[in-house]
Nucleic acid binder design. Structure first.
Lengths: 139, 139
DNA sequence: TTGTGTGCAAACCCTTTGCATTTGA
DNA sequence: TCAAATGCAAAGGGTTTGCACACAA
């Protein structure tokens, strides 16, 4: 996801009678700039002019629109990332940092689970837990 | 995990100078009776004589002791299960219910991630998301 | 013009904590 | 006996909401 692609999201908003406000553009731009998995607070530190409430409201909106994903792992606060082709996550148990893993997608498990449990299956995630290099060095 | 096995946990508590209180026994027994992935509130509904604070404090203690696992998925409230051999979870996006999946463990991913990211890896989880049969029927 | 979005402060909800009282060993 | 556990009520911390005002279309 790069800055030019924000423009491709604008029609999506207009389609649903949602307004293209400076705040929405800045939140999306900041998400791109941070290039990772920031929390709502991380985002607000970059754009303190925008209220936390507006950041939360819009992150929630973008999740509903499918533009971004919410990652609820780690000590009760969510992190956000742009929706993208499937990938998994490594999570640092020490600082909560998340990194992406490129790993062939395990598609077969979804069908198996549907057959086995009677759930209608939509998707799946995998998280690997450990300690990141920075935290290892800090002890 | 069955009721007899609670007795095997008692030495573990005594070893650490922790007391075997009626509350602790009841919380563990209730976890067994519920045979699933209850929330702290679910447990308290079964044993309302015990305060929520005590339930939370002890669940936290049992997690630290490695007796149970905390599952932080789903709308900001944790569910708990006895620690057991590796398995994955299916989660209902509608009601939050969790069920177990028996699936061969994906051990090779841990080493791959360690090599690729420099994390020291401890373990991994997988969750499959969908809608449970009950919620499908409810529409 | 007008109804959606923003931002403040307050409310919410799950979880943790301080502290007086109870209790296991 | 006495340190550890309980339970109440209050505090915490992330997130959501009510409402008056601002502003995109």
């Amino acid at each position: 996801m790069n800055k030019d692609q924000i423009e491709s999201l604008i029609p999506l908003l207009k389609e649903k009678n949602l307004r293209v406000t400076p705040q929405r553009i800045q939140i999306l731009t900041t998400l791109i700039d941070m290039n990772g998995h920031p929390t709502a607070e991380d985002i607000q530190k970059r754009i303190p002019i925008i209220s936390l409430a507006t950041i939360y409201n819009n992150l929630k909106l973008f999740v509903e629109l499918g533009i971004i994903n919410e990652l609820p792992y780690g000590n009760g606060l969510s992190r956000f990332e742009f929706s993208q082709s499937n990938h998994y996550h490594v999570i640092c148990e020490s600082c909560g940092k998340i990194a992406d893993i490129n790993y062939p997608e395990l598609t077969e498990i979804e069908e198996m689970v549907a057959n086995l449990t009677g759930f209608s299956v939509n998707n799946h995630n995998m998280e690997v837990y450990g300690k990141c290099q920075e935290c290892i060095e800090k002890g």
